[in-house]
């Protein structure tokens, strides 16, 4: 197991995750757009938001890969199946807490249940399990994160040899 394996897996995993969600969007299955959500936290310019958003998403992908790596080290083993399980847990955390609760709390352009008359949220909040962005969103998000986890797990395990 090596950190470099985790980072390489994190990069490729994020690439796959982003591509899967983007394909889901193009196919009309979801309106989930992670780069747009992340980027609009930094700027209200649509084009720039997507550029920033992609950069932030890849940084987040690398950061989560390091978290996965730490977990693999603690458990003393790594592999694609364990990574897949991490990915599922990651997706559930994202859908219920990270994107549903924490992102709106820190996103300057997204409303929360506590938004009052003195605020004017611009962005549609994702809702529980991101269901506001389409009924297929939870399934797609889970599958994409499981693929991410499996790739990170495989890379970390592979880097051990």
């Amino acid at each position: 197991m090596s950190v470099w394996g985790a980072l390489a897996g994190g990069f490729l995993g994020t690439l796959v995750l982003t591509t899967a969600l983007s394909a889901g969007s193009q196919l009309g299955l979801t309106r989930m757009d992670v780069p747009f959500l992340l980027g609009t936290a930094c700027t209200d310019d649509r084009a720039r938001a997507r550029v920033y958003g992609y950069a932030l998403h890849f940084l987040a992908g690398l950061a989560f890969a390091l978290v996965y790596y730490a977990a693999f080290v603690v458990l003393g083993r790594a592999g694609w199946a364990l990574g897949l399980a991490f990915g599922l847990a990651h997706a559930l955390f994202s859908g219920t807490t990270l994107v549903n609760v924490l992102l709106p709390a820190v996103h300057p352009r997204m409303g929360t249940p506590s938004s009052a008359a003195d605020s004017s949220p611009l962005l549609e909040a994702p809702g529980f399990m991101l269901l506001n962005y389409g009924r297929a969103t939870p399934v797609l998000t889970m599958l994409a994160h499981m693929a991410y986890g499996a790739i990170v797990g495989a890379f970390v395990a592979g880097s051990a040899r």
Partner: peptide, 14 residues
């Protein structure tokens, strides 16, 4: 309207 992304909910003044 939104297509493939979250809705933007505008302020009236905007």
């Amino acid at each position: 309207a939104a297509h493939g992304e979250p809705l933007v909910l505008p302020a009236r003044a905007d």
